[in-house]
Write a protein that binds this DNA or RNA. Structure first.
Lengths: 104, 104
DNA sequence: CGATTATTGAACCGTATGGTTTCACAACAA
DNA sequence: TTGTTGTGAAACCATACGGTTCAATAATCG
């Protein structure tokens, strides 16, 4: 159980960290419209392909993106589960704080 | 709506970054039960007082915590508005991804 | 007053992050 | 085959991060 909790904590770290960057959030937004390969994800951003590729890896490590290789293209797609975890955390503490404010 | 609480621009970057650390999330959790001064926030964590103080600063910079000085104690209290912003972001994209999943 | 408490600030350290450039390589197209 | 495309890997750099320690300050106690 403790292990589960710490695993969860570790992923929360990763998910929030992944979200704490505008480039990565923009990539998620793009992926919300459908699958994209790395080049398509990189194109809108004024940085090298390699830099964008690293951002995708961060998203992948956080579990927010899944990659499948099709020929020479790496096709990425969104994975909403970790997001739900982050959302659950936010909701819980928002609820606690609202209670608290209500109690004052 | 009550007020534009944190005068600082609480950016999504800052909020997500602040949340991407277990020590800082634990501090927020502690603050959910009521106001705490820096020492009280620092105590449960096995790190120097100065390190904990820096974490509080990060939370403050993100607009998640407000500080008021009472004598020699710095009393901290939660500020839920930036959390709502983060939550709104998550909700929006969760909705998009759910739609997308539904469409497949 | 002097001692204690609560806290910040500054300097420092090791590691992570975000960016670059260059090179390598598999997959496809001509 | 040759060449182009999509991508990763490696080396490197500057800055940020999370931690430490020690000194400084302001408020309170005795």
């Amino acid at each position: 159980m403790n292990r589960m909790v710490s695993q969860q904590a570790a992923s929360l770290d990763g998910v929030f960290h992944a979200l704490a960057d505008p480039t990565r959030r923009a990539m998620l937004r793009s992926l919300a419209d459908g699958e994209r390969n790395i080049g398509e994800l990189a194109a809108p951003h004024s940085m090298s392909f390699a830099a964008a590729s690293k951002h995708v890896r961060v998203l992948e490590a956080a579990g927010l993106v899944r990659r499948r290789i099709e020929g020479r293209a790496h096709v990425c797609r969104i994975e909403p589960a970790p997001l739900a975890m982050a959302d659950a955390w936010l909701k819980l503490y928002e609820a606690l704080w609202s209670e608290r404010r209500g109690a004052l």
